[in-house]
């Protein structure tokens, strides 16, 4: 039998089947930080009509819980989708730090 394998085009890609997100994501984050990805996006969007999502300041205490994650992810989805939609969509996160020392001390 002749070998026809060479005449067949099978898929070829380095894009891995296994996502391995827990390992891969932190490396990508470091890369984004090193490249100042946020700054690059701002530069690319310069001059476009603006879409401003104004971040509400959460109290700056404690580790984030799942509710925080929902809030920030929804904001990020909106900001990124508006950017893809042709807007200049900056995102300036905020924190509210007042009234904390005393309340915090009391709770302890």
């Amino acid at each position: 039998m002749a070998d026809y394998k060479q005449t067949i085009n099978l898929p070829q890609t380095g894009f891995p089947m296994k996502a391995d997100l827990a390992q891969r994501e932190p490396k990508m984050l470091a890369d984004w930080q090193a490249r100042d990805l946020y700054g690059r996006i701002r530069a690319a969007a310069k001059g476009r009509p603006r879409f401003v999502l104004h971040d509400g300041p959460p109290y700056a205490n404690g580790a984030i819980h799942i509710g925080h994650a929902v809030n920030k992810i929804l904001k990020d989805i909106i900001v990124k989708s508006r950017s893809l939609d042709g807007f200049d969509a900056p995102y300036i996160p905020g924190w509210d730090c007042h009234g904390l020392p005393i309340e915090h001390a009391v709770e302890k």
Binding site: P26, L29, Y38, I64, I73, I92, G94, W95, C97
Partner: peptide, 21 residues
């Protein structure tokens, strides 16, 4: 501490210059 977690979520923003009340 919160900032590290938010960044880890993949949220892009001006994390180096947030506004603080």
């Amino acid at each position: 501490m919160q900032r590290t977690d938010f960044k880890r979520l993949g949220v892009l923003g001006d994390w180096d210059n947030p506004y603080l009340t």
